[in-house]
Amino acid sequence: MAANDDLIEIQQLLARYAVTITKGDIEGLIGVFTPDGSYSAFGDTYTLDVFPELVDAAPKGLFLTGTPLIELDGDSGTGTQPLCFVEQSTHDMRIGYYTDTYRRTDKGWRLATRAMTFIRRSGIHDSGIPHAFERPSA
């Protein structure tokens, strides 16, 4: 597969992330990750088994993502994608960017890791308020 085909496939994967999370399609959202994938925010890293609860606890709204900057190296890659989240009931916005790693699998390209960085009005870039989400007890 040519590099341009890989870039298009990854861009579509990231579009699927934004659309599925906006629509509340948790199965579709989990499907964009590798089975061992993870999401980082709020000072912690979450595995896919707790991702449904993390998404359920988060505000609902529209995830607007920009064109990602992607670097590929064989069957893996890294990237950064801008994000503007608009909360559905107040239309308050959160802005920031995702920092990603990608891996080619037998099902195509998937997110291996996704980390959220928020951009604050002060200009500070951070991963959010620690412990904003309580993990279920084991």
Results as ranks from 00 to 15, higher is better:
residue 7 L to Q: 09
residue 90 T to S: 13
residue 112 A to D: 15
residue 78 T to M: 08
residue 85 F to E: 10
residue 46 Y to G: 03
residue 8 I to G: 01
residue 54 L to W: 13
residue 18 A to G: 03
residue 70 I to L: 03
residue 30 I to N: 07
residue 26 I to V: 14
residue 81 Q to W: 04
residue 102 Y to V: 02
residue 55 V to K: 08
residue 96 G to E: 07
residue 118 F to L: 15
residue 100 D to K: 01
residue 137 S to A: 14
residue 16 R to Q: 10
residue 90 T to I: 01
residue 107 K to T: 06
residue 104 R to Y: 01
residue 92 D to P: 01
residue 19 V to P: 00
residue 126 D to N: 14
residue 66 G to Q: 10
residue 57 A to S: 14
residue 50 V to N: 01
residue 122 S to K: 12
residue 65 T to N: 02
residue 116 M to I: 04
residue 128 G to F: 03
residue 47 T to Y: 15
residue 116 M to Q: 08
residue 65 T to W: 00
residue 104 R to A: 03
residue 98 Y to W: 02
residue 96 G to Y: 02
residue 57 A to T: 01
residue 105 T to C: 08
residue 10 I to A: 00
residue 82 P to F: 07
residue 10 I to V: 02
residue 131 H to K: 08
residue 113 T to G: 00
residue 62 L to V: 14
residue 110 R to M: 07
residue 93 M to L: 10
residue 116 M to F: 13
residue 21 I to S: 10
residue 6 D to L: 05
residue 119 I to Y: 02
residue 78 T to P: 02
residue 95 I to P: 01
residue 21 I to K: 15
residue 138 A to K: 08
residue 35 P to H: 11
residue 52 P to R: 06
residue 101 T to R: 05
residue 64 L to W: 05
residue 92 D to Y: 09
residue 36 D to R: 15
residue 49 D to K: 07
residue 103 R to Q: 15
residue 42 F to R: 15
residue 131 H to S: 06
residue 1 M to H: 15
residue 15 A to H: 02
residue 126 D to W: 05
residue 6 D to V: 05
residue 68 P to N: 04
residue 101 T to A: 04
residue 62 L to H: 08
residue 116 M to L: 15
residue 36 D to G: 12
residue 131 H to Y: 00
residue 67 T to G: 05
residue 121 R to G: 11
residue 25 D to W: 06
residue 96 G to N: 09
residue 87 E to G: 04
residue 81 Q to S: 06
residue 17 Y to N: 00
residue 73 D to M: 12
residue 55 V to F: 11
residue 115 A to H: 12
residue 130 P to C: 04
residue 79 G to M: 05
residue 41 A to Y: 02
residue 133 F to Y: 08
residue 104 R to L: 13
residue 129 I to Y: 01
residue 82 P to H: 10
residue 138 A to W: 03
residue 1 M to N: 14
residue 10 I to C: 00
residue 46 Y to C: 03
residue 69 L to A: 15
residue 60 K to A: 05
residue 91 H to R: 13
residue 99 T to C: 06
residue 120 R to V: 06
residue 83 L to I: 01
residue 118 F to N: 07
residue 58 A to Q: 12
residue 110 R to D: 03
residue 5 D to M: 07
residue 30 I to C: 09
residue 68 P to Q: 08
residue 25 D to I: 02
residue 67 T to R: 03
residue 59 P to D: 14
residue 104 R to N: 04
residue 131 H to W: 00
residue 111 L to C: 07
residue 11 Q to C: 08
residue 92 D to E: 01
residue 119 I to R: 02
residue 52 P to Y: 12
residue 124 I to V: 15
residue 45 T to E: 13
residue 28 G to H: 10
residue 3 A to C: 09
residue 111 L to E: 04
residue 111 L to N: 06
residue 68 P to L: 03
residue 111 L to D: 04
residue 29 L to V: 01
residue 6 D to G: 05
residue 46 Y to Q: 04
residue 138 A to N: 08
residue 90 T to H: 03
residue 52 P to W: 09
residue 48 L to W: 13
residue 91 H to W: 06
residue 84 C to M: 13
residue 50 V to F: 07
